[in-house]
Write a protein that binds this DNA or RNA. Structure first.
Lengths: 103, 103
DNA sequence: TGACAATATGTCATATCTGACATATTTTTA
DNA sequence: TAAAAATATGTCAGATATGACATATTGTCA
């Protein structure tokens, strides 16, 4: 991961103190974050393709607009669980989820 | 999913009242459960391949033997998050996770 | 431009997950 | 076999994620 990406992640609230500290993000942590981001992006793509607003999606998910917003940016406060459940609720298959992770 | 699988899931604690209710498991729910089970099985496979005991893995994960046991059977009390974090901690790549989901 | 729709951000009470512990059960080994 | 090691099950206090709300910001279109 590069400095560009760090900036992006920092902006999104992943608390990263310094470049040094950032570089010490374990392989595990960065993989986890990347996974989340990929699926988040996929979720937004899916929603917009289906021409839904966040409010409409929230209704489908029995959640709230603000949580959908957080889901779609991979906010640290949302779990992979919720992202994946949301993708499934929008009709994504397990195979498609796998594809998104691999991409 | 068939009756056999229901029995198996019920035994594992997924609360399913009746066959009728079971059959009403939404596509979403069953996909979610299947996803979890696939990754759980993968986790156990990985641990045994690396010749680790649950106690040893627990130490690596900074968790406990009992939680590892639950992770490996996809217990309803464990999140996808924890399963995936555990896989990553054992050195699994995102691509490998994707493969496991697709399998 | 201004007004309206959509999305983002911050906060919080409640719900759910977690590690830890005790203990039961199963598997391995001598 | 019997003892030891490994795994499973049940419970719970504390940690984390959640929906909901208020409000801010951004995008769109007349």
């Amino acid at each position: 991961m590069n400095r560009q990406k760090q900036k992006s992640l920092e902006k999104k609230g992943w608390k990263i103190g310094s470049t040094a500290e950032f570089l010490n993000l374990s392989e595990e942590e960065s993989s986890y974050i990347e996974l989340k981001l990929k699926l988040s992006i996929n979720l937004r793509k899916l929603r917009t393709e289906q021409k839904l607003t966040q409010v409409e999606l929230a209704k489908i998910l029995k959640s709230s607009q603000s949580r959908v917003a957080k889901l779609e940016i991979g906010d640290p406060s949302v779990s992979l669980d919720l992202i994946i459940r949301s993708l499934l609720a929008l009709g994504t298959s397990n195979k498609e989820i796998a594809r998104a992770i691999s991409s």
